[in-house]
């Protein structure tokens, strides 16, 4: 099930640059959001995607327009990878009406209908049903879509994971279950929460295939997911993909992360996908050091523009308070 790193980069240079740009976009967006949180412009929970960028970017490179995507509260990175404008994301974090959910959802509840992004979900395990529902729709309408269902290691022990995987297997739903295993659910190491940590093997219990990938390696994620997505698109059988990854920051901004050692965190930072890919492109003379620096500068500027945009945007008008509770007006209210 495990795979070896590809010797020859199989991804075209343009594609690599595009993915690097996406990862940088996520990284800088999240860094800016932490800063804005410290300045009290963002409140509530804030779960960043820093460290896990290669998983989202490498996987969603294979998303076609008709496909759907759903994930947890750790939802900023995937939204951006899909193409959500940083302004719409940052404004959501600031609770402004220009945000992707009109300021009503906040950090945990990004949505983006244009990309069939069915949401960031706050309840662990709450998104599985949504994800297989989208897969069900694809079969119903015969539109050849697949469903990307992202979740954490901690969610594999919720009942909904097993119920929904069984349903998908039973009914041949084209659902790709992607476990972003960052090795902790909050402060709990997965070995203390999951009886069988060979996550991919859980698929076998439902007669399906499971794969284990190195989520810190963009090449591996991108190349293997290309084949896996293709497979699901044609077989209409669900699969389980175990992505081994790591989050550099605490569970959310309020978590100091005392349950892990600095050495452990540093060992993953040393394998940072952004570092690795930028080095590879520079060493391979695909881009120069200066071009990379300019790219970083460009993205930082874009993120700063998003922050300024969010800051200057108005809060939702009070009339919106009870708007969007129901779509249809019924009764005599």
């Amino acid at each position: 099930m495990a795979s070896v790193k590809n010797e020859v980069p199989t991804i075209a240079k343009d594609k690599m640059l595009e993915m690097l740009e996406k990862m940088l976009n996520i990284r800088h967006f999240e860094e800016a959001s932490i800063k804005a949180y410290q300045q009290k412009k963002i409140a509530g929970f804030l779960h960043t995607y820093i460290g896990q960028e290669a998983v989202g970017v490498g996987t969603l490179a294979h998303k076609q327009p008709q496909d759907a995507v759903v994930t947890t509260y750790r939802c900023h990175g995937l939204s951006l990878a899909l193409g959500l404008p940083p302004k719409a994301g940052m404004a959501e974090l600031f609770g402004r009406v220009t945000g992707c959910a009109r300021g009503k959802g906040g950090s945990m509840h990004f949505f983006d209908k244009q990309h069939n992004f069915l949401g960031g979900h706050g309840i662990v395990g709450g998104q599985f049903g949504v994800g297989i529902g989208a897969a069900f729709k694809s079969n119903y309408d015969e539109d050849n879509a697949v469903s990307f269902i992202f979740f954490g290691d901690g969610a594999t022990v919720q009942g909904t994971f097993h119920e929904c995987f069984n349903l998908a297997a039973l009914w041949d739903l084209p659902a790709i279950f992607i476990c972003e295993d960052n090795q902790y659910g909050m402060g709990t190491a997965c070995t203390r929460a999951i009886a069988n940590t060979v996550i991919a093997s859980k698929a076998e219990a439902y007669g399906c295939k499971g794969y284990t990938l190195n989520g810190m390696d963009l090449h591996e994620v991108h190349d293997r997911m290309r084949d896996i997505v293709k497979e699901v698109r044609s077989t209409r059988r669900p699969v389980l993909v175990h992505m081994k990854t790591y989050r550099y920051f605490g569970h959310s901004v309020s978590d100091a992360g005392a349950y892990r050692s600095k050495e452990e965190v540093d060992s993953y930072k040393a394998r940072d996908p952004i570092l690795a890919i930028s080095r590879e492109l520079i060493d391979g003379k695909s881009i120069t050091e200066d071009e990379f620096k300019n790219l970083q500068k460009k993205i930082k500027n874009q993120i700063q523009e998003a922050v300024d945009f969010a800051d200057e945007s108005p809060e939702p008008p009070l009339e919106e308070l009870t708007q969007h509770v129901y779509m249809d007006e019924v009764g005599n209210a």
Binding site: V97, G103, G106, H109, E320, L321, T322
Partner: peptide, 16 residues
């Protein structure tokens, strides 16, 4: 609490 799910925006949360 007013008859809507809790919104995130500061002003709407306070109004709720």
């Amino acid at each position: 609490q007013s008859e809507n799910p809790m919104p995130y925006a500061a002003n709407l949360e306070a109004a709720t």
